[in-house]
Lab assay of single mutants.
Amino acid sequence: LDITFHVDGKNIHVHGASEEVVRIIEELIKNNARAEEIKETLERLLR
């Protein structure tokens, strides 16, 4: 699975993920999660 995301100002662009995963990533970023935390969360979800 190949998910890429980047933050452009306040806009979060996520590619290669389901809508549910996109929402989770957006929440994590809004809550100022570190990249490592986001990665760990995604790995748990995608197991």
Rank of each mutant, 00 (worst) to 15 (best):
L1C: 07
L1H: 10
L1V: 15
L1G: 08
L1A: 08
D2N: 07
I3T: 03
I3M: 10
I3A: 06
T4P: 01
T4A: 08
T4G: 12
T4L: 05
T4D: 15
F5A: 09
H6M: 12
H6T: 14
H6W: 15
V7W: 03
V7K: 02
V7A: 03
V7N: 02
V7T: 04
V7C: 10
V7D: 08
D8L: 02
D8K: 01
D8M: 02
D8S: 03
G9M: 01
G9F: 01
G9I: 01
G9N: 03
G9Q: 02
G9W: 01
G9R: 00
K10T: 15
K10R: 09
K10I: 15
K10W: 14
K10S: 13
K10A: 14
N11T: 14
I12C: 07
I12L: 08
I12S: 00
I12R: 00
I12M: 06
I12F: 14
I12K: 00
I12E: 01
H13D: 04
H13L: 05
H13M: 06
H13Q: 07
H13A: 05
V14P: 00
V14W: 06
V14D: 00
V14G: 01
V14N: 00
V14R: 00
V14T: 02
V14F: 04
H15S: 07
H15R: 09
H15V: 09
H15A: 06
H15G: 04
H15P: 04
H15T: 10
H15M: 08
G16L: 06
G16A: 07
G16Q: 08
G16F: 05
G16V: 04
A17G: 03
A17P: 03
A17C: 03
A17Y: 01
A17Q: 01
A17T: 05
S18T: 14
S18P: 11
S18N: 07
S18H: 05
S18D: 08
E19W: 10
E19P: 13
E19Y: 11
E19N: 10
E19I: 13
E19S: 10
E19V: 13
E20T: 09
E20M: 10
E20G: 09
V21T: 12
V21R: 00
V21I: 14
V21L: 15
V22I: 14
V22H: 04
V22G: 03
V22Y: 05
R23I: 09
R23C: 02
R23S: 09
R23G: 07
I24L: 11
I24G: 04
I24W: 08
I25Q: 00
I25R: 00
I25N: 00
I25K: 00
I25G: 00
I25M: 05
E26F: 10
E26K: 14
E26H: 14
E26S: 14
E26N: 14
E27L: 11
E27I: 10
E27M: 11
E27C: 05
E27Y: 07
E27P: 00
E27D: 13
E27S: 11
L28Y: 04
L28P: 00
L28F: 05
L28K: 08
L28N: 01
I29S: 02
I29W: 02
I29R: 01
I29E: 01
K30S: 10
K30I: 09
K30M: 12
K30T: 09
K30V: 10
K30Y: 11
N31R: 12
N31L: 10
N31P: 01
N31Y: 02
N32D: 13
N32W: 05
N32G: 14
N32I: 05
A33W: 05
A33D: 04
A33Q: 07
A33H: 11
A33P: 05
A33M: 09
A33C: 05
A33G: 09
R34N: 13
R34W: 06
R34H: 13
R34P: 13
A35F: 15
A35M: 15
A35N: 07
A35Q: 07
A35E: 08
E36L: 09
E36S: 10
E36A: 11
E36G: 09
E36M: 10
E37A: 12
E37I: 14
E37K: 13
I38N: 01
I38V: 14
I38G: 01
I38C: 01
I38S: 01
I38D: 02
K39T: 14
K39D: 08
K39N: 10
K39P: 01
K39V: 15
E40V: 12
E40Y: 05
E40T: 12
E40C: 05
T41W: 12
T41D: 04
T41S: 11
L42C: 03
L42E: 00
L42V: 09
L42S: 01
L42R: 00
L42Y: 02
L42I: 12
E43V: 08
E43M: 08
E43P: 00
E43D: 13
E43Y: 03
R44T: 12
L45M: 11
L45H: 07
L45D: 02
L46S: 08
L46N: 07
L46W: 03
L46K: 05
L46I: 13
R47L: 11
R47A: 15
R47G: 15
R47C: 06
